[in-house]
């Protein structure tokens, strides 16, 4: 494997997703670098969440290859894994645009559920755990310590035993990120993590994401509308519009790209006239 390949954690190649006659994502290819924060941006309805759902196993892509490469060299083809296997084997974790916490369960329990698979193994598929196997108790303690670490990190240690649904909105956002981190991912996919946050909460979130990237060597792929977040923390930006990739590059380059500006702000009338004249209309 070449250096360029090991440097990439996720290679999206010719991804196409059709819903009946609607082409939500059309032949999109991009790479996400290992240990970097890659942002996926675009106007509403550009197909960002569809790309996300394909990567995280909620949709099966119509065409395309999604190659995930772990640091140890093992390769997972995400379009062939499906559903919970993406998280369990390929170790891709995600958050949701509209927060999906287990609202009635406590913050701590939310983080424990995220460690389901290792705990399940430790409990001997429940059987040993039912009879009070000591190995399970230590595994559970380890899981609790990990949860405590993340609760401390997101500043919710005091509220560990409170139901997740009763936490303030910003805390719920952070808790969802922590929950995804407890699943021990190599790639963390965040669907609009800053939506609905105020400036201070947004800054806290930025700090958390940078911490995750530098201290835990987890690569991050995020969808975001909040440009202050995107420009400040991302290393690489991919822009989608109407299901097609229109730009791909460093934040500064993307910001100045006329196509991107056009997609977000619209283009001048003269340009449309020139284009129409060229097309012979």
């Amino acid at each position: 494997m070449t250096d360029a390949a090991t440097d990439t954690i996720l290679a999206v190649q010719h991804l196409t997703m059709r819903f009946g006659g609607l082409v939500a994502v059309d032949d999109v290819s991009f790479n996400a670098k290992r240990g970097a924060i890659t942002a996926l941006i675009g106007p509403n309805g550009a197909g960002k969440t569809t790309v996300f759902n394909c990567i995280t196993g909620f949709y099966k892509p119509t065409v395309g290859m999604l190659k995930l490469m772990h640091a140890d060299g093992s390769v997972y083809l995400l379009e062939r894994l499906f559903d919970f296997r993406i998280n369990k084997f390929a170790r891709v974790a995600r958050t949701f645009q509209n927060i999906r916490l287990f609202q009635g369960m406590t913050a701590l329990e939310n983080l424990m559920v995220a460690q389901h698979n290792p705990l399940m193994r430790a409990s001997g598929m429940t059987v040993l755990g039912l009879f009070g196997y000591s190995g399970f108790a230590s595994a559970e303690q380890a899981a609790k310590d990990k949860a405590r670490y993340w609760l401390d990190r997101i500043g919710l240690l005091e509220r560990a035993d409170d139901p997740a649904g009763s936490l303030p909105y910003g805390a719920q956002r952070r808790l969802e990120v922590a929950r995804a981190m407890c699943a021990d991912p190599v790639l963390l996919c965040l669907d609009e993590p800053a939506a609905g946050l105020n400036a201070r909460e947004s800054a806290e979130l930025n700090e958390l994401l940078l911490f995750i990237r530098t201290q835990h060597a987890v690569s991050i792929l995020l969808i975001e509308h909040d440009m202050s977040v995107v420009m400040e923390i991302s290393d690489h930006i991919v822009v989608l519009d109407y299901g097609v990739k229109i730009a791909d590059g460093a934040p500064q380059a993307v910001r100045d790209d006329p196509k991107v500006v056009g997609a977000y702000l619209g283009v001048a009338d003269e340009e449309i006239e020139t284009a129409e004249a060229e097309a012979g209309l």
Binding site: G57, F84, V113, N117, A183
Partner: peptide, 8 residues
């Protein structure tokens, strides 16, 4: 859905 995203 959240369960599935957590590998359950």
């Amino acid at each position: 859905i959240a369960c599935r995203s957590l590998g359950i």
